[in-house]
Simulated scan of single mutants.
Amino acid sequence: MTTLAEMPAQIQQTMEARGLLQTQALGDEQPAAVQHALPRVSELVMTSLAELASQPEGRDQVWKLAQEAAAAPASSPVGAGLVKEVLVDRFHGTVHAIATAAGVRATTVAKLLDVATGAALGLLGGLVAEHNWSAPQLAHWLRPHQAEPVLAPLAGGVAPLAAVGAGPEPSWFASRSNWLLMAVSVVAVAELGYIIGTRSADADVAAPAATSAAAGSNRQYTAIPVANLATKPVASATTVPVPVVLKLKDGVRQVIGATSTESKLYQFLVDPSKGVDPTDPTKDWIGFDRIYFDSNKATLTNESLWQLSNVASILKRFPDAKIKIGGYTDNTGQPLSNLRLSKDRAQAALDALVSLGVPTSRLTAVGYGVLDNIASNDTEEGRAVNRRVSMQVVQK
Rank of each mutant, 00 (worst) to 15 (best):
D60K: 08
I98Q: 01
V184Q: 14
V394A: 01
T198N: 15
Y328S: 08
V205Q: 10
D320M: 07
A72P: 02
P359I: 08
R176M: 08
V150K: 01
V205E: 07
Q35V: 08
V385A: 11
Q22P: 00
T107W: 00
R387P: 00
L123M: 14
L121R: 07
S337G: 12
A348N: 03
V186Y: 06
P153M: 01
S54L: 06
L121D: 03
T299A: 12
A375M: 08
R219C: 05
G327C: 09
L246H: 03
A159H: 10
T3I: 03
V205N: 07
G93M: 04
V34Q: 09
L44K: 06
P77T: 03
A129D: 13
D114N: 13
L49G: 01
E29H: 05
S42E: 10
A258F: 00
G79P: 07
N386R: 04
E29S: 14
Q13C: 08
A207Q: 13
D60Y: 05
K396N: 13
T239R: 11
D289L: 03
E130N: 12
A214T: 14
D28G: 01
V385Q: 12
P319I: 06
P77F: 02
L87T: 11
P39W: 07
G118F: 00
R253T: 13
E85A: 13
